[in-house]
Write a protein that binds this DNA or RNA. Structure first.
Lengths: 199, 199
DNA sequence: CAAGTTACAAATTTTGACATCTGTTACCAA
DNA sequence: TTGGTAACAGATGTCAAAATTTGTAACTTG
């Protein structure tokens, strides 16, 4: 007997996201997902090769939504690049803080994937680095930010703000002073990026 | 029957460190420590109020050795403060990399303590921040580093180099490019600290 | 009384039988 | 052939009983 709805990858992803939110990443089995969809778990395996792949797909979809929200800020040419850089870095933090509050289970699932060295995590970092590179390139173009290589500089800025974007620090993001700390780091980095060509 | 050696706090710490190295942090019980010393486990409790306190004492001793090694670099007034800052930050990373390689079990024990919000971890960070503050204050004194408040600036630099000093990133320290990344971050931070008084 | 012991309750960890889950294969229906 | 099921082996997770560990107290000895 076929399922009421024809069961496509998207329906599976939506159901998985729901289960994940409700049960948490540990207790979200593919049997549960299948049950929620009214099919046998083997049916799910027709669409995703493994539980890992399913989890990655869900997480990727969720991260892509974040990426798109941040891209709007990164591409806002109405804001001067230096200030845009600062705003964007704050937004990266704010988006993750919000996700921890709203979808702690999904956030935990992302943490597990990142720890497992999934390509989802590295791709996400690559996306963010791309946006950062674009901001810095804009700054280089209008002379407001000094850099030889926007991409290399983006990596440096990203590394220097690891405390505010790397999952490993998620626990510290609840600390009330965290925004001020990021602001101070931004300040020092922007001093460095503004500086007239070295001594 | 008294133990051969009179059993002082130091002997217990040494034995615990040995057990910790051999068995790892999870399987290092105070019964094991007592057995290694040829006494009953109750004897150990005469010297340390709890297992937690014993572990903290071991870890503190180990961290203090690191702190002292770094203090030598921080206080080396023969090296100009800017370069000293760079060298010191590299040393912080190098010391931890070496410990991971040599004493992975002890390093893991420190990680557990840090996660448990033990004062050992926060004290260690305070020690490091003190050394960093001293370097920056030296730079402010001889005019080579620009800062209003050496302590605040030290915090900013420490936050900006979290990827290279915070335990949460220990896994990334095996990456071969990590030293170069730190160097790049140092470069940008020093640009910021060198910059002539703002705009 | 200083430094240790034995003995013990409560908390924690380990163990092992049992249940569930993952991923595969053979099969069925439109 | 597409889209599903049922049945299965092996891996993984669960749960309660058993063993160990933590921490305390009353006791021993020089």
């Amino acid at each position: 007997m076929p399922a009421r709805t024809p069961l496509d990858a998207n329906a599976i992803l939506a159901a998985t996201e729901e289960i994940l939110r409700r049960h948490g990443p540990d207790k979200a089995t593919v049997v549960d997902v299948a049950r929620a969809l009214g099919v046998s778990h083997a049916a799910v395996y027709k669409h995703f090769p493994s539980k890992q792949a399913l989890r990655e797909a869900v997480t990727r979809r969720w991260l892509d939504r974040n990426r798109d929200a941040l891209a709007v800020i990164a591409a806002d040419s109405a804001v001067p690049p230096a200030q845009r850089l600062r705003t964007w870095l704050h937004a990266v933090l704010a988006v993750k803080q919000a996700k921890i509050r709203e979808d702690p289970e999904l956030f935990a699932a992302y943490g597990i994937l990142a720890a497992a060295h999934s390509s989802v995590a590295t791709d996400h970092v690559a996306d963010l680095l791309g946006q950062l590179t674009a901001i810095i390139a804009d700054g280089a173009a209008d002379g407001s930010l000094r850099t030889d290589d926007a991409e290399a500089t983006a990596r440096v800025v990203f590394n220097a703000t690891a405390k505010f974007n790397h999952l490993a620090h998620a626990a510290e993001w609840q600390n009330p002073g965290i925004g001020a700390e990021l602001d101070e780091v931004c300040g020092l980095l922007l001093e460095g990026l503004h500086a007239p060509t070295s001594p």
